[in-house]
Amino acid sequence: MKLEGKTALVTGGRGGIGRAIVSRFLREGARVYAADLTPEGSLARHDDDGSIFVKLDVTQEADAVAALEQVASEAGQLDILVNAAGTEIEKTIEETSLEEWNLSFAVNVTGTFLASKHSLPLMRKAAASGASASIINFGSYDGFIADPGLAAYCATKGAVHALTRAMACDHGPEGIRVNAICPGYVDTPMLQSFFTGDGSGAGGKSIDQLQQAVRDVHPMRTFGTPEDIANLVNWLASDEARYASGQLWVLDGGLSAQVQQMKL
């Protein structure tokens, strides 16, 4: 029970990775607010897992303010913020409309900015009580090296990486640690929609063959699971990680350790 007595807010908390984080935090003894557009989230089902659902459109400042007001009145402080809400547009810049570009930045970058900004007063309270307060953002290995046809996504994740370092610099002296996890291919609704969204680019391969080809490029020969990501989120959220700040933590089954062209 590494998170006993801590309060956590997870944006995108009803989605693939978010839900695994919420469930891990609950097992570790934390009080957890799962913030999302709907209780069903991208998994399109509702579990009564013991988390507190908060309706949050991360692009709306009023929503962020209201969510944190709820946390303030019920819990009084916030020890852990996980910015897991995200969206992915599978297009080159030429194909991307301005609306799609703006939506990508609104969810992935502005959403991280708004939730973090309005969490800071509650996180300072947590830090002042002696524990370490921890913000965990979601970058991506795509913020380091580009996947084809994901221009806006790569750009937003690069922005999240830089924002993570900036926030760590600015708020470290206040006792708030800020890190980002950079997942590779993780089995979530977002990944499934990446494979099924445009089968035409698969060179005649079925979706199953395509997925296997992608697995085979990984040194670990598999995709990650949301639980793999939750394992690292849990460490970064805990006091064991009290000296870890300002870093981008790649968790991708070894994918980006190798110089290898994706042959799809």
Partner: peptide, 15 residues
């Protein structure tokens, strides 16, 4: 699922 990576633990210095 963690392999092939460099994990920096430096109190934020190189950030």
């Amino acid at each position: 699922f963690a392999t092939g990576q460099l994990f920096t633990v430096d109190g934020g210095m190189t950030a």
